[in-house]
């Protein structure tokens, strides 16, 4: 961890011993543990497929994600403005007998698991970093704004479609639901249409 120049063998230069040693200027630096390579997307995909199948076998339902966000928002709105939430047809779908408890919502607990699993996988592979993933073409700040805006659009889109890539794409895809396949195709169209506008963001 020191910045002291040493020989390859670790002996500090500048001492009597070093005059006999080779003139190497190897500096010992802190070696950040290298991030392990990602797994094959096919293998990881099959892994997810098995998890999805397990969900069907155990629960009779598939996986999801956006629904968890709805539960949280509905619970928050109902806590802040109960009558407003109760009167709103969208929020009231998520509230049964008064304020919904997100911690009893299947999807919310699944998402908690996703966080744990993602952290575990990244932790063991040396891929945990407090950073912002972005291309060199934009700043951190710009990237975060993009992420927020993108997230807002996805929030609206997912609620319109009643699902997202997990709930419709994976679950609906596997159960051959027509609307889910339509959603995925539309999502890819929307993404490919938008991507050229953001090329610089990722370069």
């Amino acid at each position: 961890m020191s910045d002291v120049a040493t020989t390859a063998a670790g002996q500090p230069l500048g001492t009597a011993a070093s005059s006999r040693a080779e003139v190497t200027t190897t500096t010992r630096v802190r070696v950040r543990r290298e991030a392990a390579p990602y797994a094959s997307p096919y293998v990881a995909g099959v892994g997810i497929g098995v998890v999805l199948l397990l969900a069907f076998v155990l629960m009779g339902r598939g996986l999801g994600a956006s629904g968890a966000f709805s539960s949280v928002v509905a619970a928050a709105v109902s806590t802040a403005a109960p009558s407003h939430a109760a009167g709103n047809e969208f929020y009231s779908r998520y509230l049964s007998d008064g304020a919904a408890n997100p911690l009893r919502d299947w999807l919310v607990l699944e998402i908690i698991g996703v966080v744990i699993g993602g952290l575990a996988s990244a932790g063991l592979a040396g891929r945990v970093r407090w950073t912002t993933e972005r291309g060199a073409g934009i700043t951190d700040r710009r990237r975060l704004v993009n992420a927020f805006v993108g997230g807002t659009a996805m929030g609206v889109g997912a609620k319109l479609a009643r699902g997202c890539t997990s709930g419709l794409g994976l679950t609906g895809g596997a159960t051959l639901s027509v609307g889910s396949w339509l959603f995925v195709i539309a999502a890819f169209v929307g993404a490919y249409a938008t991507a050229p506008l953001l090329r610089r963001a990722w370069r």
Partner: peptide, 27 residues
């Protein structure tokens, strides 16, 4: 999952645009 043709196509387009902008999906 139930099919709602128009909302799912429109929602998909919006979602996709957000996906490309944000670079991540909900999960």
């Amino acid at each position: 999952p139930e099919t709602f043709i128009a909302p799912q196509v429109v929602g998909g387009l919006i979602f996709g645009a957000g996906f490309a902008t944000g670079g991540l999906c909900p999960g």
